[in-house]
Each structure stands twice: as structure tokens, then as C-alpha cells.
């Protein structure tokens, strides 16, 4: 099983809910992350992103005055943002397909549905570490390649035997319900003209 040391990781956490910030911050610290920068909305998050070295962003969607969707869009497209390719994990309680597609098209790397649990948060983090997506720039889009299917590691109790080694970089595999949601995140695909690309 793969092992990880998150001590050197600098995370920017953006959420307008003080309780959610505490929950996710506690989880990250328990995982070993020592540097967690915290912002209460997208606008503050942008300032922090330009002010600090950030390896990974975790952002909520529904915030005021600037929500997570606009934050992601600006990170990917605003020329004044220093790190347009920073990995972004969006967390939200909204799981509607149109929202997932909108977040994907704004340029998120991965999507995590609330409720956030230690297992599903760590699963997404490890997935982002082990399966980074190349970036794509077209006339209408800049962000992670939107086509690859996700296979998230799974830490739950109902793992079926014999399949773990293939799909899980950490030695576990994705649960069926999570896998379905994850597929919805990335299954939209680029325009037909781009689908001839071979990435890996």
C-alpha cells in the first residue's frame, strides 16, 4: 500500500462556513498537512493564492460575495493569477449533473460531494496525487483535460477481493456510488476535434 507524507503540502481552503472550515482543516491536519491557508470566499482566496505558495486548493461552491465557480474560472483565465494550473478540488452539497458539468467546464480538477468524510476527502487527495490530469487549452477552455474517467481509491469495508490492485494506487478501490458520481464529473469530454488526442 502506498504511503504519503503531507507535511510539505500547502493547501488553500476556501469555505464561507466556519464549521466546514474547522472540519476540513482538522481533517487536513490529521492527514499531516501542516500549512493550511484559510479564506472565507473566492475573492479572499484569490488574494491568498497570489500571496502564498499553494500546492492545492479545496473550495466550496456556494459562497458570497464570490462563489467557488467564479473563483475557479478566474484562477484558470485571469492573467493576474500566478498559478493558473494549481490543482483545485471543489466540494459542494449540490450534486446535480448540470452543476457538476459547470464546475468541470470552469476548470476544476476533481469534485467531492458533501458530506465530507475523512475517507472520501483522503480518497480524492490521493487520486489527485496519483492521477494528475494534463491541462488543455482551446479557444474556449483552459483547464484540466475533462475526458478521463475517474477511479477513486476506496477505504470502506465492502471492498471486493481481487480488484484492488488494478484501480487503486493506494491499494484500495472506488465504491460503486462514488465511482458513479466521479464518472459524472469527468465524462463530458472535449469537443470532437480534440478527441483524437492521445494523452498517455
Amino acid at each position: 500500500m502506498a504511503r504519503y507524507n503531507f507535511e510539505a503540502l500547502a493547501v488553500l481552503l476556501i469555505d464561507d462556513s466556519p464549521m466546514m472550515r474547522r472540519v476540513v482543516n482538522q481533517m487536513l491536519h490529521a492527514f499531516g498537512v501542516e500549512s493550511v491557508h484559510i479564506a472565507a470566499d473566492g475573492k479572499s482566496g484569490l488574494k491568498m493564492l497570489n500571496a502564498f505558495h499553494i500546492d492545492l486548493v479545496i473550495t466550496d461552491w456556494l459562497m458570497e460575495p464570490m462563489d467557488g465557480f467564479d473563483f475557479v474560472r478566474l484562477v484558470r483565465t485571469d492573467p493576474y493569477v500566478a498559478t493558473p494550473m494549481v490543482p483545485i478540488l471543489m466540494m459542494t452539497a449540490h450534486s446535480e449533473l448540470w452543476r457538476v458539468a459547470a464546475a468541470r467546464d470552469a476548470g476544476i480538477n476533481e469534485f467531492i460531494l458533501k458530506p465530507i468524510t475523512p475517507a472520501n476527502l483522503l480518497s480524492r487527495l490521493i487520486y489527485m496525487i496519483e492521477k494528475p490530469r494534463p491541462f488543455v487549452r482551446t479557444h474556449t477552455y483552459f483547464g484540466p483535460d475533462r475526458r478521463r474517467k475517474a477511479e477513486y481509491p476506496y477505504f470502506g469495508p465492502d471492498r471486493r477481493s481481487g480488484e484492488a490492485a488494478e484501480s487503486d494506487p493506494s491499494g484500495a478501490q472506488a465504491p460503486a456510488e462514488d465511482a458513479g458520481k466521479a464518472t459524472a464529473v469527468v465524462a463530458g469530454g472535449e469537443p470532437a476535434a480534440e478527441t483524437t488526442m492521445v494523452l498517455q
Partner: peptide
Amino acid sequence: WCEMIETRNQLKERTATPDGRDPGEMI
């Protein structure tokens, strides 16, 4: 027109180490 941009996996370079922690312990 489409440009594919691939970079070093900095996340992995920073986090995946043999002496790291087991995910189960972290959870």
C-alpha cells in the same frame, strides 16, 4: 486549435514517500 500542457507531478514529488503514513491511520 488545441494545446496539451503536461507538467511534472509536483504533488506526488512532495507527498509520496516510502516513509510516509498509511492512509488508514490518517483516516
